[in-house]
């Protein structure tokens, strides 16, 4: 009987729980209408502001490092889409440090389900969808203007690479959030990590070799848009790293998850 119960908690169990929490959450969000409107407006505004920054740059400089306007736009759109899942599904990481410091985090440890899942499932951030729409528009516009063929293969590739690229940012934020289990003022770590995302939208080729190494292997923001984009932007000379990025993304996400869970185990729960 017990064994049967435990065996049932597989992927489909978690997906169904997530779906149910999500539906309930969306229902209750409807009751905070002003918050929803202001947050969505804020999200759209950050995207518009990012776009204005982008336009101001290109108003002054027509090309950067051999990347022209449409290519840059493609990269920009790609990064926005790839950054959507971290915004929509993993936003509760921002609350982690408060929960840990106040001791409220302990409540996630009393349920017979995965602590990371339980914690993350609690918040779904609707406003990230605005960013998704904005990114998708830019992406399609740039796709058409560069003249990338629309075939089953290219679309499948786009979906695969977008999904795995998003794992990098999720993983970075997992790492950053989990530092709160060890250090007090981990807010800075998160803020800094989150700022790095601004540079996902520029070609990594602008960096010198040291920094390209750092942003490829240590803080891999170059994988959030640059490497996977090369598959579409320069299809005739795609570096190996681009093709490997889905596998690296999965590995990196897994590592971040392990680190997060290690933090949970190491943490003393003294805050009560």
């Amino acid at each position: 009987m017990e064994l049967a119960r435990e065996r049932k908690r597989g992927l489909s169990f978690y997906l169904s729980i997530y779906r149910k929490i999500l539906i309930q959450d969306l229902k209750s969000k409807m009751s905070f209408r002003t918050d929803f409107i202001i947050s969505t407006f804020g999200m759209v505004l950050t995207n518009v502001s990012g776009f204005i920054t982008f336009m101001i740059l290109f108003h002054n400089f027509p090309s950067v490092n051999g990347w022209d306007y449409n290519h840059m736009l493609f990269l920009y759109g790609f990064s926005l889409i790839a950054l959507t899942p971290v915004q929509c599904f993993f936003d509760n990481n921002w609350n982690l440090r408060f929960m840990v410091r106040s001791g409220d985090f302990i409540k996630y440890c009393f349920r017979p389900i995965n602590v990371f899942f339980y914690f993350i499932s609690e918040v779904f951030d609707v406003k990230g969808l605005g960013q998704f729409a904005f990114g998708l528009g830019t992406f399609i516009y740039a796709w058409a203007h560069i003249g990338i063929p629309v075939t089953f293969v290219t679309i499948a590739e786009a979906v695969l690479f977008l999904m795995t690229a998003s794992l990098f940012m999720i993983a970075l934020m997992n790492f950053a959030a989990a530092t709160c289990f060890w250090i007090i003022n981990s807010g800075y770590v998160m803020v800094i990590m989150f700022r790095f995302k601004d540079f996902a939208k520029y070609p990594a080729s602008i960096f010198n070799s040291v920094f390209r190494f750092i942003f490829t292997f240590i803080i891999p923001i170059a994988f959030v848009a640059y490497y996977p984009s090369l598959v579409f932007v320069t299809p005739d000379r795609v570096p190996l790293l681009s093709w490997l990025s889905p596998a690296i993304g999965a590995l990196f996400f897994w590592l971040s998850y392990k680190f997060w869970m290690l933090g949970v185990r190491k943490y003393d729960f003294t805050g009560s």
Binding site: E2, R5, E6, C109, F110, R111, P112, I113, N114
Partner: peptide, 8 residues
């Protein structure tokens, strides 16, 4: 922890 949590 998970199996324990089931019964508490």
């Amino acid at each position: 922890r998970t199996a324990n949590a089931e019964h508490i």
